[in-house]
Amino acid sequence: MSADKIEVRVAAIAQVAPLIREFRLEAVDGVLPAFAPGSHVVVEMPAQPRPHRNAYSLLSDPRDPSAYRIAVRKQEQSRGGSLFMHEQVSEGDLLKITPPANLFTPSWYAKRHLLIAGGVGITPFLSFLPELRRRGAEFELHYLYRGSQTGAYSDELAAELGSALQRYDSEQACRCDLGELLARQKPGTHVYICGPQSLIDGVCSTARELGWPEDAVHYEAFAAPAPGNPFRVELARSGRVVEVDSDTTLLEALESAEVDVPNLCRGGVCGQCATRVLEGSIEHRDTYLSADDKARQDCIMPCVSRAADDRLKLDL
């Protein structure tokens, strides 16, 4: 993260689903920057031995400058960021965040908006909704979750949206038939998906089969980078060597070594962190590079991808 971090105070914490907590963040000085629907911030948590940095969608009304709200799902298998938020952060604590960035925004050319959320993937849509309603846009929201874990805000949304909301609690044997849902969409519809990769893949392949244009399908994956094998990186320009342990991403290891790499999504989506690889083979885990780019083995997204063997040499 670069110098323009914002210091925020955790003004309130609320349990909004069995595994999801909401955090209300207020600026310590001045006001928070305005943001567009679908924006996220990267939250820096003061953990030891190195800070955690996770990206979270803003779920507040983009026009509300008084606070940002984020929701964090507890991931037991994660590398610690979400556990830290759940177990270590209390009201009144100070955190640092990046200014909002946006990789998932409504297409205002669309005639209709079909929103499909899975679990905590509801969050970006909460910032879409006020704007869609202000513009009088036609939309429907389909919300898939497991009642014993997620399903945050589901009752509030039902009260607010009425028939524009469909809920599917998989534990109540309530399934969403994606084929049927997409097939009945009217011309001019754009679909937006936020949720687990399996949901994104399901919608994308259904849309493709139906012959939908690719650019009417928008999605945001919120998967956190998974652990992997430890490896060592050599930095060609400085001659330094940085060790990456199995729970640390390459980007985090570089940051700990004070090597600045620009980044935005920290999830392998935006391409900001692209770094040239001079030697070693790469295990690509991003969704930014094309299959051809990946096969060339000369560029890595250090926020998620790792060495396939035990070393890499980077042009840094």
Binding site: K111, R112, P187, P213, E214
Partner: peptide
């Protein structure tokens, strides 16, 4: 055509 909700790729 864009104004009718068609996308660039169509």
């Amino acid at each position: 055509v864009r104004g009718n909700g068609f996308t660039e790729r169509q």
